[in-house]
């Protein structure tokens, strides 16, 4: 975590004023050892993972229902949803990223939250050639840093698409 902070500081100091205007804030989180980022503007809030209520008949990636201050929302396991290898799951500090997808408020469960980071547009490579763990469909771009670390920029709306769950209810 400390390393990343310094990376962040370095990256910022090199930005010219023109670049700064093209900078957006991202929430950085971890799945396995990979770092992912989502635009902060798409994040409503982040909470610790409360207990989940199992919903019969739901797919594996659907963790269940959680209580968000009196509202009941669905928790999606981002790992399982994106097909990220779950064998080395490290859930020491799991967190839920609350976001609105259309009319639906969803909670996306991630391994841990790292920080909020400003990333310039020019730091993000949108032309992906390498497939990463089978989750490339959801990846909008890769932000690369001088210390060779990188952050995968996630298309959250695409990643937690739940349209397969929405069907016409009988009655």
């Amino acid at each position: 975590m400390v390393d990343e902070m310094t990376v962040n500081a370095d990256a910022n100091s090199e930005l010219t004023s023109e670049q700064k205007s093209q900078t957006r804030k991202y929430l950085i989180f971890k799945l396995n050892d990979n770092q992912y980022g989502v635009p902060l503007s798409e994040v409503k809030e982040v909470i610790g993972l409360p207990s989940c209520t199992f919903v019969p008949g739901s797919p594996e990636y659907f963790l269940g229902l959680i209580n968000l201050r009196g509202r009941v929302i669905s928790a999606i396991d981002l790992r399982s949803k994106m097909g990220v290898d779950s064998s080395s799951r490290n859930l020491k500090r799991p967190a839920v990223i609350i976001t609105d997808i259309g009319d639906i408020t969803l909670g996306c469960v991630v391994d841990s939250i790292s920080e909020v980071m400003s990333i310039g547009k020019d730091q993000i490579d949108n032309h992906l050639e390498v497939k990463v763990n089978g989750d490339s469909d959801f990846i909008k771009g890769i932000a690369r840093f001088q210390d060779r670390s990188m952050i995968l920029i996630l298309d959250l709306k695409h990643a937690v698409d739940v349209s397969d769950l929405i069907r016409h209810r009988a009655g």
Partner: peptide, 30 residues
Amino acid sequence: LSPEMTACPGASGVTILGDGNPAIILDLRV
């Protein structure tokens, strides 16, 4: 029920129990 929660057969709504956990309301007829 939010539209993505309707996978459960017969679920007609949800509620929050005394312990703070959500629970599904089952409509026996449905």
